[in-house]
Design a protein around this nucleic acid. Structure first.
Lengths: 341, 341
DNA sequence: CTGTTAGCGCTTTCAA
DNA sequence: TTGAAAGCGCTAACAG
């Protein structure tokens, strides 16, 4: 069997209490004693049993991360960054994937993280009242990525502002008939961006004296295939748009494909801008609104850990908003285009 | 504070041992007693403390999943499927992302899963001797996804056979000058597919009496951008290939982009086939070799859990190989093409 | 079928 | 600065 704290204590000639203190770097341990303990632990290849430690201390050293999906670009980036940040802080990551409505309902009903995490991070979910209540019963710091919630720490971008910038970029290029491909605000999974990006887009048009045309707002469901179909519908209109704002790069990729299949050139026939700055956007020469996903994930995770460290079970709501950035590439600017005509 | 087992025992008028048995569904509990316990637990909204249970039983009800990357299609699918399977079995998922060589070295040195998992699943990694030894010290069932290892349960596909089928498909279409875009067999991260897919590709050519031409084998590093550049290099050859086999769909997507930028038609000028059947392959009308990622992940996870359940710390090596399937789309078959010419 | 009693391997007072 | 001892909240014999 693996060595226990008693083995180390015996070997170092001290009590188990001293071993515990020495190994955790607590003060009030003589340097010589600490060295002896460290040496003994190293020789025995000792690691503390996390479960015993958790039971005794009440701290789990684990953070729960809740995502609606795993296999989408944004969430992959989030999981990656959160995992890295937690790992460096010596925390474990407990991952919960909602998957669909049924999974979401089951999750909030059973609250499977009860008694097993020090903090919870929710990624890009618009939470209902009862869902928030369920999380609050956990009695630990709560974090939200992508939008604010009362009683949550949050880190996000200004989706509306980003969408405005995208629309304004197209307007500045002289476009007046601008379409958007977006998520479904009524999607039962209620993920964050749809509502706000749509809103920002519309406000930019209105400021330019253009009344948003419902026909020019198509649903792409945040998938490539959805973006393709939405673009097909736009191109089937009697008067097609001269520019398209896709509320995510993945939908923009689908739009590129659709435009190609229709024999239309980008940006000469139709200009296109996305949102996210997906790794693939550069390759496809897609203009976009860049959002810093790893930075957001790192920021919220770090602050959540700080709250745990401070023993602050209900930290005051603090919302951090990170900037987005317009990235102009060939899909809107012909002078930069690497597309074939 | 949350209710403990004693609260439930008191409320149900039984001992804590009975509560434990009743709640875990053990036999030898009178139905009436069980009902009373269940009712009391429900009223108190009781859930057992996993840490106390783990400490007492020695079982962690947790499986460690080790992946080299998170933000790649294959691994996203794997994480998703493993998480779902574990969740349904009441197990927690502990996710470890290697990220790069340094992270990989750190992982195998510290073995951060020691004393915290009942089984370990390694995704698509070619393990070195010392890495295998490190894992064996965990003394729990080990699983490998994507290739076999001694002393591991494994589930994979026959990468070589899949690649052969891809090459044979191109040969059957009359192509003789066939290129491949693959991973780097010398990649320090040593992920699985590169070696075998390359091998299968070459053997198919040889059987057709064609000696593989090193110039026609380019590295795409399993990324879209890498695939694009590899394809650029192929098209820059004095005599360009008439068909390309990309060892992953993501690299094939890059190749599609490259071909487009060169003004070449698919499949008229250059035929293209990928490997994986990425969700996007259908949208891009890409022929490919379909591999069942969720099924593989589910199979290995289920068998790993069975070994845990059986208390079988060193289950005999059993390698399951799931079939791949040729999916013909427009990128190789002009008659099915939806591409613009 | 049910209760009693030891632990599981740590952390954390409290004394010394 | 260190040690003794009392738990943390369960599970698992062992009796009865």
């Amino acid at each position: 069997m693996a060595a226990s704290i008693e083995d180390v204590a015996r070997r170092a000639g001290v009590s188990i209490a001293t071993v515990s203190r020495a190994l955790r770097g607590l003060p009030d341990v003589a340097t010589a004693t600490r060295d002896r303990v460290l040496a003994a632990a190293a020789e025995l290849d000792y690691v503390a049993s996390p479960f015993a430690a958790r039971l005794a201390s009440g701290r789990t050293n684990t953070v729960g991360l809740v995502v609606p999906f795993i296999s989408r670009w944004y969430f992959g980036e989030v999981i990656d960054a959160v995992e890295t940040t937690l790992r460096m802080a010596g925390f474990d990551l407990l991952l919960y994937n909602l998957g669909d409505e049924a999974g979401r309902a089951r999750f909030f009903e059973r609250m499977p993280m009860r008694k097993r995490v020090d903090a919870v991070l929710i990624a890009s979910l618009v939470l209902a009242e009862n869902e928030i209540d369920a999380l609050l019963t956990l009695g630990c710091p709560l974090g939200s990525l992508g939008l604010e919630h009362d009683n949550f720490l949050s880190t996000s971008i200004d989706d509306a502002a980003g969408a405005r910038v995208a629309a304004q970029h197209l307007l500045a290029l002289g476009h007046r008939r601008i379409a958007t491909i977006g998520g479904d605000p009524d999607d039962p999974m209620r993920i964050t961006p749809p509502l706000r990006r749509r809103e920002g887009f519309r406000s930019a048009l209105r400021e330019a004296g253009i009344e948003p045309d419902p026909q020019l707002e198509q649903l792409g469901y945040f998938t490539l295939a959805g973006g393709l179909e939405a673009c097909d519908r736009l191109l089937a209109l009697p008067e097609r748009p001269t520019a398209i704002f896709a509320e995510s790069d993945e939908m923009a990729f689908g739009a590129i494909r659709s435009l190609r299949l229709h024999g239309l050139r980008v940006p000469e026939d139709v200009a296109l801008i996305g949102f996210d700055d997906h790794v693939t956007a550069e390759v496809l020469d897609l203009s976009t609104i860049r959002q810093p996903v790893p930075a957001q994930a790192h920021d919220i995770t770090t602050r959540l850990l700080a709250a745990v460290e401070a023993g602050d079970d209900e930290p005051p709501t603090v919302d951090v908003v990170l900037p987005t950035e317009l990235v102009v590439r060939g899909s809107t600017d012909p002078s930069r285009s690497v597309y074939q005509s």
